[in-house]
Structures are given as C-alpha cells and as structure tokens.
Design a protein around this nucleic acid. Structure first.
Lengths: 146, 146
DNA sequence: GCTAAACCTACCATGGAGGTAGGTTTTTGG
DNA sequence: CCAAAAACCTACCTCCATGGTAGGTTTAGC
C-alpha cells in the first residue's frame, strides 16, 4: 500500500508552482529542473490537474502554468484524489456494488472507515500549510488531537 | 494507492479463523472454500502471520490453524502491517534517511501524518469489532470523533 | 505405515506504474 | 510574417511486484 509517484511528484509540482509563481506563470522545464523530475512526466500530471481545474496555462513564449486558486484553497487531498485514479483503498469500498460478497463481507465497512480518515487528513492540509511549515517541518496543527 | 489483496484476503482469513475456530483448529482448505480464495495463496499468508506470532498451528491429521490470541486482542492494523511489506505510504516517510531531498522536502511531514492517522484507525479496530458489527455493518464506535 | 494436514521452494504471468519519443498547435517578439 | 518557445498530444516501451501455481517434504494421528 503505497502512494504512487504521481501523487508525490504532483504535490511537489503544485507546491513548486505556489512557491515560484507568485507573480506569473511557471514553466514545466523549470519545475522539472528544480524538482529533478522528468519534464515529460510532469506534462502528464499537469494535464490531469488542468482537466480538473486546479491549474490554468498559457501557451507560447512566456507561457507556463499557474494554480487556478490560491494555495490556501487547495488541499493535498484534492491533488491526491485526482492523480491516484482510485479513490478508495479497496475496490469494493466505493459505492460500486459489484462485489458479490458485499452482504457477508465483515471487512467492507472497516476499509471504508480507514479510507475516510485518510482523506479526512489529506483534506485538512492545504498547500499553504506546507509552504508555511517550518523546517524541519512540524505540521502539527492539532498536536495529538484526541 | 490500494490495499493489496494480501491484506484483504489475510484479514478475511483470520476473521474466518475467529468465526470457525471457537473450539479448535481450522483447516486451510476449509477457509479457502468458505472464502473462495486459493488454498495455496492462503498458505503463504498464514506463514507470514505465523512467523510474527499471530497464528499457531498443528500438523498432521486433525491439524490446522488458530489465532494465537483472542480476537479482541488482534487489530487489523497488526494484520495489515505484517502482510503489506511496506509500513509507510511513501518510501521516505519511514525512519530511513535515504532521501537526498529530505531537508528541503516540504511534503515529507504530510505523508508521515497521513500514514499515522491511517494506522491509528487500523489499530483501533479489532477482529472482535468486525465480528460483532451488525449487518449492514456500522462500525461507528466513535461516531464522528472530534 | 498410511493418510491428512501443514510446511516449503521454486517458478510463472500479467497489469499497470513509471518513463520516453516524437511530434502538433498556439503565441509572442523581432 | 517568421522563427522560436512553450504548451499540448498520441503512442509506445520497460520493468517488476503482485498475485497465483506446481510439486514436492515433513509431521502426526489412527
């Protein structure tokens, strides 16, 4: 059970845009160089995020990409959801009813709950949170909760 | 980002043991039939769980497997941890320091936090909880938390 | 000592993640 | 108007872990 590189690279990408795009557009090539990720690969990620409205772009010379919303209004949960094709930890945990064992499946609800708390956490972290976190970054907004 | 079938099959397997092993051992063949999972595959899973002390076995005729502890004392977090080789959602999120970007990695802490809350939830659910959950199972022990 | 079960080692296949190649289209600046 | 810079697009490739199988060997009960 791992996050794919899509989510991780994608998050670093939008974070890079937030950092370097204060006053304008950011070129894929620049992100690729700074983050040490293949530009071609970033292209694919940017396309997905553009399709869902998180990024706007302009072509041609002096073109580039930028976040469509301020960093404080984009959570990493949103990014991860877009880039991981699969919204749930297990197939049967979604609303799809294609699991023949659903009725007798004691575990179903458990996976659902775990998926929920995971995205709850992801949705509580905005790009701005990440930018503002001091290094070494302690993200503790709700220290140990209870 | 998905749970592997190892975790899911494994959880169903130990759950089956809890259900049918009240007074004795459970044969792999029987679990395989009831859960509709290949016996050979279950063999592999049982071996991993045996290695970590969650299952005890007896060979020969009338042999079989049983949980080494009562269902109330085994969490699905423990099962998942054993069967997913990888304890963290991302490589760099463990204690391993092999990520060259660690210092400048704003996202590191976030993945760590998400991994933590996920296992926190997994560790809060025992096999007994699953057995006792009414169908359709509402697992809400702490309804919406806060 | 026969049989039932766990136990073990090795192997295989397939999908999808991760990455690359080679373009086409839009836009700007000279 | 043209050339260059950037986004945009389609197609392909490689690799390896997951998921699964085959064919045994060892232990123990009758």
């Amino acid at each position: 059970m791992r996050l794919t590189t899509r989510s991780r690279y994608g998050t670093r990408m939008v974070l890079d845009m937030a950092q370097h795009g204060k006053n304008g557009l950011v070129r894929i090539e620049d992100i690729a160089r700074r983050q040490d990720i293949s530009a071609k690969y970033l292209e694919k990620l940017v396309r997905q995020l553009k399709g869902t409205g998180y990024i706007k772009s302009r072509r041609g010379p002096n073109g580039g990409h930028a976040l469509a919303k301020p960093p404080g209004e984009i959570t990493i949960g949103e990014i991860v959801r877009v880039l991981e094709g699969t919204p749930s930890l297990v197939d049967c945990s979604g609303n799809s009813q294609n699991c023949p064992r659903l009725e007798e499946c004691l575990t179903h609800r458990a996976w659902q709950e775990v998926t929920r708390v995971m995205y709850e956490k992801l949705d509580s972290i905005t790009l701005e949170d990440l930018l503002e976190s001091p290094r070494p970054c302690s993200l503790e907004k709700n220290p140990e909760n209870p």
